[in-house]
Amino acid sequence: MISNKAKKEINSWVEKYPEGRQSSAVMEALKIVQSENGNSLTTELIQEVADYLDMPGIAAQEVATFYENYNHSPMAKNVIRVCHNISCMLNGSDELITHLESKTGVKTGEVTQDGNICVKKVECLGACVGAPMLQIDDKYYEHLTLEKVDAIIDGLKEGK
């Protein structure tokens, strides 16, 4: 169920678009609903958002599956987004990702058993200058080495 608070927030986005174009707010609406639902979306929620914005369910689903920042299964507390596009790849992001996988013990996109960490491969985050890089919450970590990554992970494990 979409809460009234979320509906209010969605409405504020709907107002930004011309009348009859309320479906343009679908990205924000999904984001709002996702954050309310423990950082993940379900088919039912997507359908509800679609109904609320008077658009076909499949159209909302298209948006929700296109972008990396919508999750379709329960998400970890900390999501590590590792860029694997050209600049980062040339600077060794592949190595980083394999290291992260062995360190956390799960594959990219999966959540560790304690629900703490999930490593995601993402497209360019616009920080090629600091390649290779990753993002946790809103913070960028750049010029990474395996040691730096270890430190970051350990920090997360300790709950920092």
Partner: peptide, 20 residues
């Protein structure tokens, strides 16, 4: 007049499918 099929995912994982 009813959008029943759609393209979900992207890149190599793009699928044409109905929602439910």
């Amino acid at each position: 007049g009813i959008m029943e099929m759609g393209g979900t995912g992207r890149g190599e994982s793009l699928k044409i499918e109905p929602f439910l």
